[in-house]
Structures are given as C-alpha cells and as structure tokens.
C-alpha cells in the first residue's frame, strides 16, 4: 500500500515538474524570440509551442492541465499582487483618481452590457452569455466572476485572451483614428477594455499610459465583480 502511495506521489510530482519545467523553458525562449521579433506575442508563441510539444509526445491536454495546476493556482496570489501597481499608481495619479474611477466604472458597465447583450441577441445559451459578461477584465478575476454567474470558465478565458490580444493590437491605433491621444485617456481605455495584455503592450511603449492602464485594469476588475454580484441577485 505504502509503495503504491509513494509511486502515485512520485508520479504527481514528476508530472508537475515536467509540465511546469517545459512551460517555463518555452516561455523563456518565447521572451527571447519576442526581443528579436517584437510582433511575436510571448503568450501565443509559448502556448503554440506547448501545444506542439503535447501533440508530438502524445500527452493529453488533461494530463498537462493537472501537471501545470500550480501555475493556474498562482493566478490567485497574482490577483492579490495587482494591489502593488494599484497602490503605486494610485499614489501617483492621486489628483485624478475619482474621475478615473468614474470613467472605468462606466466602461466596465458598457463592457458587461454589450458583451452579454450581443451574445444574447445572437441566440447564445445562458452559459455562453454568462461567460461573455466578464470578458473585459483580467483573467483571474474574469474566471471568478464567470463562476459566480454560472458560466463556463474555459469560454471566458478564451474571450478574455482574444479581447486582450485584439485590444493591444488595435486599441491604440483605433483611439488615434478618433483623435483620442491623451496619455490618460489611452491608458484608461486600453486598461478597461484589454486588461493585462493591453497594459503590458502599453508599458513597452509609453510608461505613463501603462501606469494609467494598470490602475484602470485593476479598478475594472473590482467594479465588474461588484456589478456582477448585483446582477446575479436579479438573474438567479
């Protein structure tokens, strides 16, 4: 019995070390690739490489998901860690904090209503509508909000990621097109709509935009979870 238990434990640990080791190594390689070719988004290149490795070694996704569970768990403490940029940027942007909060609150409400509303009008199921509602906010918070609303977290994750990638690629360009160029406005818009992925792309370009964006992103996450709480009282 003990031997079997030990063997099972060894298996779990080995699986975790392999899954996490491969992911971290590929991520590291992706960061270097990104330095060389800036258009190669590290999240996409890492994930594509992981999928290729899993396919080549015939490892089912479920095995990889269990092995890499620690990485997914860390999204929880990482959400808490967002308190640091929020605190720092909050101190820095003290003078405009109230106005920024108002802007982000309106943006979050627009995001939830349009995402849920459009999915509903397209005839999507309750599950898909619920999964679409939190798609503008940072992944760890979006997943939790989705669960509160009885959605499917897998759908939310996909939508959050696509929103972030599209938003970071198109956001600054679209805003420029309609003459929205003030650093704070661009930061607020990208942070509220495209969360961490959009913020990361802004930080590389303009420090102040990234600063406003990271504050807006965390505010949007908090507002959306509060609004979702109110929504779920009426909805269920």
């Amino acid at each position: 019995m003990r031997n079997q238990g030990t063997q099972r434990l060894t298996e779990i640990v080995l699986r975790a070390v392999l899954a996490i080791g491969v992911t971290v190594a590929l991520y590291w390689a992706a960061l270097h690739t990104h330095r060389r070719w800036t258009w190669a988004n590290p999240l996409i290149t890492t994930t594509a490489a992981v999928v290729v490795v899993l396919y080549a070694l015939r490892v089912p996704y479920e095995t990889y998901r269990l092995g890499s569970a620690v990485l997914t768990y860390l999204l929880g403490p990482a959400t808490v860690a967002l308190g640091v940029p929020m605190y720092l940027q909050g101190m820095r942007l003290k003078q405009s904090l109230g106005k920024l909060a108002l802007v982000v609150l309106v943006g979050s409400l627009v995001g939830m209503v349009t995402a849920g509303g459009v999915a509903w009008m397209c005839g999507a199921s309750h599950e898909v509508v619920a999964s679409a509602i939190p798609k503008s906010v940072t992944t760890p918070i979006a997943v939790e909000v989705c669960e509160e609303l009885h959605g499917n977290p897998a759908i939310t994750v996909a939508m959050v990621l696509i929103t972030g990638l599209l938003g970071s690629a198109l956001g600054p360009w679209l805003l420029d097109l309609v003459s929205i160029r003030h650093d704070h406005a661009v930061g607020a818009a990208v942070g509220t709509s495209s969360h961490a992925i959009g913020t990361a792309s802004l930080i590389q370009r303009f420090e102040i935009q990234g600063s406003v964006s990271s504050l807006a992103m965390v505010m949007a996450g908090i507002f959306t979870s509060v609004l979702a709480m109110v929504l779920s009282w009426f909805w269920h």
């Binding site: 108002l102 627009v110 349009t114 995402a115 999915a119 397209c122 679409a132 798609k135 929205i180």
Partner: peptide, 24 residues
C-alpha cells in the same frame, strides 16, 4: 456558438474602447 462569441468579443471591445476613451 462561434458567431455569438466573435460578435460579442469584437462589439464589446470596440464599445468599451470608444466610450472609455471618449469619456476619459
């Protein structure tokens, strides 16, 4: 639900970008 997912993602992204950017 491909259509619902794509439409919801794109429309909502544009709506949030423009309203938030404009108001900001």
């Amino acid at each position: 639900d491909a259509l619902a997912l794509i439409a919801s993602t794109v429309v909502s992204l544009l709506a949030v970008l423009l309203t938030t950017g404009g108001l900001a």
